[in-house]
Each structure stands twice: as C-alpha cells, then as structure tokens.
C-alpha cells in the first residue's frame, strides 16, 4: 500500500509560530517536501510531509508541540485540464469523502502531486489503483 505519513501540528495564531516549526526542522536538516496550512480564527494546523518523519515527530514533541501522524495518499496528476477532476469524480462516485487535500508541482515532468486525506483510505487506494491512477510511496516521495 502506498501511503504517505503526514505530520499535523497544532499552531496558535500568533506571529512567528510557524516560523518556529520550520526553524526547528531546518536546524536538524529535515527537508519539507510539502506543506499546507489550515486555519480558523484562533488556531491553525500545519500539515507537513517531510523527509525523516520519525525524527521530525520526536523533535517537535520534545519541543512541546501537539501533533498527530496521519496516513494520506499522494496522487500523481497529469498537469493538464480535467485530470484532477477525474480523480475526484472517481472518489465521489464511490462515496469517498475528501477531508482535505493540497497539491504541489513536482520535479516530475508535467506532473503535479496531490495529497489527499480521505474518509476510507483502503477503499480509495484500491479504487485509484484499479483505475490506473499513479500514487507515490513514502520512499518515492522522499526521492522527488
């Protein structure tokens, strides 16, 4: 199963707080492959995919951050109109809910990578691989 471990960190809404997370990771040479921020009026959640998840988790915990590790799917999407819609339609037709998603352009030529957190990861993964949607493993993610 190709799963990507994502670290979600609770962050209070105050200036410089995200910077502290990034500095912490940077000082230990932990590379961030993807980052997304979700926020409400008074707090936020930083979602990170890093090279060296366990090390990052230990580091953040020792600095009193509240965090969780969540399994997500990384889909490789053709960089052309309608390709993401096709994935979403597959999931919708099979009643799989997307809790959140975010994307980034990758060094893979003409491809983007979408990180998805879905309501039923096993079902989603099977569905996507049955439909020949390319997914990345943690190792592949590290290498891109």
């Amino acid at each position: 199963m190709k799963r990507i471990r994502q670290i979600s960190v609770f962050i209070e809404n105050r200036p410089g707080r995200l910077l502290e997370v990034l500095n912490l990771l940077g000082s230990s040479s932990i590379n961030i492959k993807a980052l997304s921020l979700a926020d409400s009026s008074d707090f936020g959640i930083a979602r990170l995919i890093v090279k060296g998840t366990d090390e990052a988790v230990a580091l953040l915990k020792s600095n009193n951050f509240t965090l969780s590790v969540t399994n997500t799917i990384a889909c490789v999407v053709e960089d052309k109109p309608g390709s993401l819609a096709q994935i979403l339609k597959l999931l919708a037709d099979n009643e799989i809910n997307i809790e959140y998603m975010y994307g980034f352009t990758s060094p893979i030529e003409n491809k983007a990578v979408m990180i998805l957190k879905v309501s039923d990861i096993d079902k989603a993964q099977k569905l996507l691989s049955d439909n020949k949607i390319e997914m990345l493993s943690q190792e592949e993610m590290r290498e891109i």
């Binding site: 609770f10 409400s40 509240t66």
Partner: peptide, 15 residues
C-alpha cells in the same frame, strides 16, 4: 490547552 488525545488534523473537529 490541547492535548494529543483530542488533537485532530481536521479544523472542524477542533472547532
């Protein structure tokens, strides 16, 4: 204070 027990990576659950 939010502990790991109640922390969720989804905003709506925390809200």
């Amino acid at each position: 204070e939010v502990s790991e027990k109640v922390f969720s990576d989804e905003i709506r659950k925390l809200q």
